[in-house]
């Protein structure tokens, strides 16, 4: 147990291999489910590509697992605004995801103006801004602007939700 856990420590990349394997198995499983009568006009059928893709994913999963266990690792992506010297900051990511999910839950019921405001304000807060009032005003302005912009400019009616009749 201990030796296994030390072996697994720092090998979170095995999770990627597991994900690839799971997706591959899913694709193959779904392909096996398809019943296709042989057709002269379509000798390949809808099964061929899923089988190829599923197998490719499974092979990648196995090879990646072997590669990782042998000490290989993928290089995290660098960028202009990225500092890889500190580990992933979950105290930023989780609130960000929270704001995102709040928007998903709110958008159809409360409407875009409210959910969009929540999304922007929450994201800005998660990213470290502490100008609550200014951020709130910017968020509301953005949401209102896009709501009317999409409606008047693009003819796309975003949901008005709770504010139906007011907007």
């Amino acid at each position: 147990m201990t030796s296994l856990s030390t072996r697994l420590k720092g090998r979170s990349e095995l999770g990627v291999a597991a994900l690839l394997g799971a997706v591959g198995a899913l694709v193959l499983f779904d392909a096996a489910r398809l019943v296709v009568p042989y057709s002269q006009s379509d000798p390949v059928g809808p099964k061929a590509l899923p089988i190829i893709v599923g197998s490719l994913l499974l092979v990648c999963a196995v090879m990646l697992a072997v590669n990782v266990l042998r000490g290989g690792h993928g290089e995290a992506e660098a960028g202009e605004d990225i500092d890889l010297s500190h580990p992933a900051d979950w105290r930023t990511i989780l609130p960000l995801a929270g704001a995102f999910i709040a928007n998903i839950l709110l958008i159809d019921w409360a409407g875009w103006v409210i959910s969009g405001t929540v999304l922007f304000w929450g994201s800005v807060w998660a990213l470290g801004s502490r100008h609550y009032v200014r951020d709130g005003l910017i968020a509301l302005a953005l949401a209102l602007l896009t709501f009317y912009g999409f409606y008047l400019g693009l003819g796309i009616a975003l949901p008005a939700g709770l504010l139906e009749g007011i907007l």
């Binding site: 969009g116 994201s123 800005v124 975003l158």
Partner: peptide, 27 residues
Amino acid sequence: PRPYLYAGILFFATLGAYSVNLQAFDL
């Protein structure tokens, strides 16, 4: 300020993806 930049990216990503079919499932 970067909070505005990245919050803006998420905001417009959501807006764009939602406006294609107007369904929360896409989000």
